[in-house]
Computed example of a mutant assay.
Amino acid sequence: MTASSLSLPNASHSPWIRRWSDGTAPRLRLICLPHAGGSAGFYRPWAALLPPEVELLAIQYPGREDRYEDPATASMDELVTALADVLSPLLDRPYALFGHSMGSAVAWELAHELNGRGAPAPRRLFVSGRAAPGTAVVGDVHRQDDDVLCAELRRLGGTSSEVLDDPGLRALVLGTVRDDYRLIETYRPSVRPRLDCPVHVLTGSEDPELGQERISERAGGWADLTTARTEVRTFPGDHFYLTPRRREVVATVLRRMDPSLTTGGHMWPSTP
Rank of each mutant, 00 (worst) to 15 (best):
S7G: 02
P15C: 11
W16G: 02
R19W: 02
S21I: 09
S21P: 00
A25G: 05
L30D: 12
L30S: 06
H35Y: 15
G38C: 04
G41F: 05
W46P: 00
A48T: 08
A48C: 00
L49D: 11
V54Y: 01
Y61S: 06
G63D: 11
E65C: 00
D66F: 05
Y68C: 02
D70T: 11
P71Q: 13
M76V: 11
M76T: 10
L79H: 05
L79Y: 04
L79P: 03
A84C: 13
P89R: 15
P89A: 15
L90M: 12
D92V: 07
L97S: 09
F98T: 10
F98Q: 10
H100C: 08
H100K: 14
H100D: 13
S101V: 13
A107S: 13
W108R: 08
A111N: 09
E113I: 08
A119W: 13
P120Y: 08
A121Y: 05
P122H: 06
P122N: 10
R123P: 05
R124C: 09
R124M: 14
L125F: 12
F126L: 13
V127D: 09
G129A: 15
T135S: 14
A136F: 11
V137E: 15
G139W: 14
H142M: 09
R143L: 13
Q144N: 10
L149Y: 03
C150A: 09
C150Q: 04
A151G: 10
S160V: 01
V163D: 02
D165W: 01
D166S: 03
G168W: 06
R170A: 01
A171F: 03
V173E: 00
G175S: 02
T176A: 04
D179L: 01
I184H: 03
I184L: 07
T186H: 02
Y187R: 05
S190G: 03
V191F: 00
P193Q: 03
R194S: 00
D196Y: 00
D196H: 00
C197I: 02
V201E: 11
T203K: 12
G211Q: 14
I215F: 09
S216V: 06
E217L: 13
E217D: 15
E217R: 14
D224Y: 05
T226N: 02
T227E: 10
R229G: 00
R229F: 02
V232E: 07
Y241P: 11
L242W: 09
R245E: 15
R246Y: 04
R246F: 02
A251I: 03
T252E: 14
V253E: 08
L254M: 08
R256N: 08
D258M: 04
L261Q: 05
T263F: 01
S270Y: 05
S270M: 11
